[in-house]
Simulated scan of single mutants.
Amino acid sequence: MAEVDFWCEGRVAQVRLNRPDHLNAITDTMDDLLAEAWERINDDPDIWCAILSAEGERSFSIGADVSGGGDRQRRMAFGGGLTGIGGPLVTLKKPLIAAVQGFCVGGGFEMAMCADIIIAADTTEFGLPETKVGIIGECGVVHRIVRQLPHHIAMAMILTGERMRAEAAERFGLVNEVVPLSDLPVAAIRWAAKINAASPLANQAAKAAALSRLDYPLEVALDTQFEGIERYALSTDKREGEMAMKEKRKPVWTGR
């Protein structure tokens, strides 16, 4: 049985952590499989968005599996490169939805924060247990959480190790929707359908533009010409959008 499952449903790639007996702790093998998944998603024009989920009710992921040590020099980066910890940061070009449940802590929490949309089951607890147990290293999760939550809320989680329930995470804007655990897969598919109703090339160009200038002053972002947006202007989808508007019909995107 693979520790990371990968399959496609139409235009949606499904990436599922599958080590529930170990609370989906990430091994080196899983790390490599995730790296392959992100590469395939980036390279396949027929994949328009992706869903990252996990098997089992108890945990989305508790982060890295430290029980076996692992060769961190060999690892591309925890999470297959999405997090940038221990290796180069891989940018996923397509929209990513994280569907999380149970324990979503440490590196598992960081991987969820790499997504563009987070759907949380009402059983979810987010947390950074590192300081509470006296462990702290090159911890990317602290850099992400302080950018995605209000400053004092983020610092309280970092400094106390206390977990945050899904309802509070939604209130602070960390997650997009909270649903019953049984509804989590359906909710993720519903969000994927909403994303894929838009032009996939426009979505990719918009994501690249938004994230590439996130840490720059607004005037710099406004004065930047984005290669992806300029390429999109010459695409078939751009012409299809204009024609559909003129003909008062829904556009039929090809991703070309």
Rank of each mutant, 00 (worst) to 15 (best):
L96N: 03
L96V: 00
A99C: 00
Q101G: 10
Q101P: 02
G102S: 07
G102F: 06
G102A: 05
F103V: 07
F103S: 14
C104P: 09
C104R: 05
V105P: 02
G106W: 09
F109H: 13
F109S: 03
M113L: 12
M113A: 08
M113F: 08
C114D: 03
A115C: 02
A115M: 10
D116M: 05
D116I: 02
I117G: 10
I118E: 07
I118P: 10
A120Q: 03
A120F: 06
A120P: 03
A121F: 11
A121S: 13
A121R: 09
A121Q: 00
T124I: 08
E125T: 13
F126R: 01
F126L: 06
F126H: 08
G127V: 01
G127S: 04
L128A: 04
L128S: 01
P129V: 03
P129E: 10
P129N: 10
P129L: 12
T131D: 06
K132Y: 12
K132W: 11
K132P: 08
V133Q: 09
G134T: 00
G134Q: 00
G137F: 08
G137Y: 06
G137E: 11
G137D: 12
C139S: 15
G140L: 08
G140R: 02
H143F: 12
I145M: 15
I145Y: 14
V146C: 01
R147P: 06
R147N: 07
Q148G: 04
L149Q: 11
P150G: 00
P150T: 06
H151M: 14
H151G: 10
H151E: 12
H151W: 14
I153D: 14
M155T: 04
A156S: 15
M157K: 04
L159D: 11
L159Q: 08
T160E: 11
T160K: 07
T160A: 14
G161P: 00
E162N: 12
R163N: 13
M164G: 10
A166W: 07
E167N: 13
E167K: 05
E167H: 11
A168I: 13
A168F: 11
A168K: 13
A169V: 08
A169Y: 10
A169E: 11
E170I: 05
E170G: 05
E170T: 04
E170H: 13
R171Q: 15
G173C: 07
L174V: 02
L174Y: 10
V175I: 01
V175M: 09
N176R: 13
N176I: 01
N176G: 09
V178M: 09
V178Q: 11
V179P: 02
V179L: 11
V179D: 05
P180V: 11
L181Y: 14
L181M: 10
D183N: 09
D183G: 05
L184F: 12
L184T: 11
L184C: 08
